[in-house]
Amino acid sequence: MDGFLLLLWVMRLVFLALLYLVLARVMRSLLRDLRAAAREPTTSLGRLIVLESPSGEPATGLSFDLDAITTLGRDVNNAIVVEDPFASSEHAVLTFRGRSWYVEDTSSTNGTYLNGRRIEDVAAMGYGDEMSIGQVRLRLERARTT
């Protein structure tokens, strides 16, 4: 009987130990996942994806990593050069301030549109939102992680 009890207690302790082994294994994969994410350089704050661009400059499907201030327009000194007949040379500025993205229309001739609506001055922009300059449509997305 004593042997039985001893074995039973060993069994119970083994169950607890295995429970922690499962936990340790899970934790290890979590750590590996986090380390892999940390290794990836995520210096950019977000991405701007070109959805449509008839002129091919910028090319459709291109993804731009964004800094805190990104200028858009036809002039070659802009961070993102938009070669479109309806774009002004200094068309719009995309800024990350505090907790949110803002798109500012720098008095362009034909205006900047956010989700199909023309913006006046500045408008807050969320991830997933679409802006258009002339015929070029761009979508703001989170920086790529993992």
Binding site: L34, G128, E141
Partner: peptide, 9 residues
Amino acid sequence: RIGAAAADD
């Protein structure tokens, strides 16, 4: 983590 890696809000 899944939320942090998601593409949009």
